[in-house]
Design a protein around this nucleic acid. Sequence first.
RNA 1: GUGGACGUAGCUCAGUUGGUUAGAGCGCCGGGUUGUGGCCCCGGAGGUCGGGGGUUCGAAUCCCCUCGUUCACCCCA
Length: 436
Amino acid sequence: MALKYRAPRGTNDLTYPSSEKFTAVVEAACGIMSLYGYQRIVTPIIESTDLFRRSIGESTDIVTKEMYSFEDRGGEWLTLRPEGTAPVVRAFLEQGLASKGLPQKLYYAGPMFRRERPQAGRFRQFFQIGAEAIGSRDPFGDAEIIAISDHLFKHLGLEGYSLLLNSVGCSDCRPAYVAQLGEFLTRVRDSLCVDCKRRADENPLRVFDCKNESCRQAVAEAPGIGDALCPDCTEHFDGVKRHLERMSIPFGIDPRMVRGLDYYTNTAFEFQFEGLGAQNTVSGGGRYDYLAEELGGPATPGVGYSLGIERLIMVIQAQGLDPFNPPGLDLYVAGAPGTDRDRLLEILMEMRRAGVSADADTMERGLKAQMKQADRLRARLVMIIGPDELERGEATVRDLDRSEQWTVPIKQATPRVKDYLARAERPPAEDKDSDG
RNA sequence: GUGGACGUAGCUCAGUUGGUUAGAGCGCCGGGUUGUGGCCCCGGAGGUCGGGGGUUCGAAUCCCCUCGUUCACCCCA
């Protein structure tokens, strides 16, 4: 409310059970990348500002207005990473990973930062997973990178998405095309909106993105990049399409799709979902054959993608697919009035050491309140220990899902509990949480 | 950076043309059950009505400013 400290704009707190679901989705995605032979790489969240300026491009939106940059106390300019590819390629070069054999297939998962106005599906801190295959220019690598997202979506049971594909050419054919397009735009400049006039100067390809009707009409006759590709690029693009077809991954060609990072060459792609609001791209990526060179390393081709976990979770929710049950506690150790609490806590620790997730009351509350707490923690079992049980060397064990209870000798409690937990299935809990 | 919508309890929201101690449901704490959760019943705690200023005898309600949230543009995951 009128609290003094709040999470910064565009950042979010994730609490249980959303936090557990979030983790489960990330783990599912990482599991699939392992399936494709990718290995995790963990890079710093801060990098030198210059790394991003050089790689993403001086004139891009990210570099000109969205980076969180600061000068540290030693006078060095650092930036909170706005994307994952440049850091991975930097690490690839710095660690000499090429000597470990090519291609290097690396995946990452972590927060990214961009200072934009937040809206549905857009945050200032957001969580991306992604993968980079560095070293090969084979179109199969492009198709494989694309297949990861498709595989994950199908694994999660999602539908209503489409894959858009384009080739933005190489250093041979793209400049010629951009020049050709620029020339065309000069001729129709009068019918372009103010934004598009600016785009025509800064990045002509972006004019295709405009939703303004007069702009759309004006560029309808514009030359397409497909016709401008050099033979090498055409062949590569055909290869990507062929592999996707053989993988039975449907796609559409969008000759007007441009991506916002300058380092892309050849393949560019996006996965878009229906019914997501304005930010409907969940996953996207492409090839970057000059990036390693640009960063001062040997010429090394690469291809990669990244996927926004928050957007993915939005889709899962929108499609009513939430198979994930947040984990509950195995056991709650409850004490009846007058029991020896020290003995209780001993049993608690014994259970934990045996691998049983367990908790106990530390608020000196009555048994009823402890039972309620056990229920809230979604405990499967409650072990009730009172003075008389201790005297008999027994404990009452209650299954909260089935409302049945029995007694076990305290000395055998741990193996008995473990044994019970290993059997009986848990009924699915009704989910009171809606945000994730 | 630009534009629209919205800010009342931890959450979701009522609040009649401005009128006296600001309400509900859920959640939380306690009791009904001197040792048993989820259902039911009873009680309780919890709110500078986002903040500031103004109009008025009187403002949650009207006006201005400000902060925040949200959706959209730009662009992207």
